[in-house]
């Protein structure tokens, strides 16, 4: 019998702690496959955040840091500046990157750190039990917005890709979604491209994943994918929001 799908060497065969229907597992796999396909696993250093993906270090088969809340891009900066030969990537959720770590991600991007940031946006704090995130969409009910996010009190959700894309410093910024197999295949291509920019020492790279939280959204996995498609995609447009301009910065 011909094997058509198997475990990727980029991941450790540890049972994951993620809730059923959560797309973290798929995103992990896309990153791990990329480490193998680009042959960079043995010089990769990943940084796990605080939040649902705090245990990321248990799943990637490469050297890993566990960082404090929101500071992964600062840890990555320290690692990459001191050992530029390493491939350094951050894996962060929306509370980690877009609330407590806003300063670190903006300044790492603005310095043009040659690192790759994987940003998982599921519009809620998962680990702590479903509180409002900086990316919770208007009207969305959470445990701390029982009446739905009221933009008069809480402001509008942060569009991190758009914020980073407007920086003058060259960089690669893209938003992808996990709501269909076609989008997952598209996401894989973009993740690979993001890492390739680092391998070629071109620029900072950032991939935002729209993801689900069936547990805290109170929906089934399938309903969650539909809810994401119908409610998040209109607010968070997919695609490449910024590509490094040839001849302007970087070494391409």
């Amino acid at each position: 019998m011909r094997k058509i799908f198997s475990h990727t060497e980029g991941m450790i065969t540890e049972p994951m702690h993620y809730c059923p229907g959560c797309t973290h597992g798929i995103i992990h796999r896309l990153v791990a496959e990329t480490l193998i396909e680009l042959d960079i696993r043995e010089r990769a250093v990943g940084i796990s955040p605080v939040g649902c993906s705090v245990f990321t270090y248990k799943y990637f088969r490469c050297d890993m840091f566990q960082a404090s809340h929101g500071r992964a891009p600062a840890v990555a900066t320290g690692a990459k500046r001191c050992r530029p030969e390493l491939i350094v990537f951050c894996y962060q959720g929306d509370g980690d990157l877009a609330a407590i770590g806003t300063s670190e991600i903006i300044h790492a991007a603005n310095r043009g750190e040659k690192i790759t940031c994987i940003f998982v946006n599921n519009a809620i704090y998962g680990m702590t039990g479903g509180q409002m995130a900086p990316t919770t969409i208007p009207g969305q009910r959470t445990s701390t917005t029982p009446g739905g996010r009221n933009v008069a009190d809480d402001g509008f959700p942060l569009k991190m890709s758009e914020i980073l894309a407007q920086l003058q410093t060259p960089g690669y910024v893209a938003r992808v979604s996990m709501h269909s197999p076609a989008e997952i295949i598209r996401a894989k291509q973009i993740v690979k491209k993001a890492f390739e920019y680092q391998v070629r020492n071109t620029c900072f790279s950032f991939v935002e994943f729209l993801s689900t939280c069936p547990t805290n959204w109170g929906l089934s996995p399938v309903e969650s994918l539909n809810w994401m498609k119908n409610n998040m995609l209109p607010y968070y447009p997919l695609g490449e929001h910024k590509v490094p301009e040839p001849g302007k910065g970087g070494t391409e």
Binding site: V45, S68, V75, A76, T77, G78, A79, S103, H107
Partner: peptide
């Protein structure tokens, strides 16, 4: 805040 985490990354490598 960032400094203390950058030296964390530097020392860690």
């Amino acid at each position: 805040v960032a400094t203390s985490n950058m030296i964390f990354g530097a020392a860690g490598v």
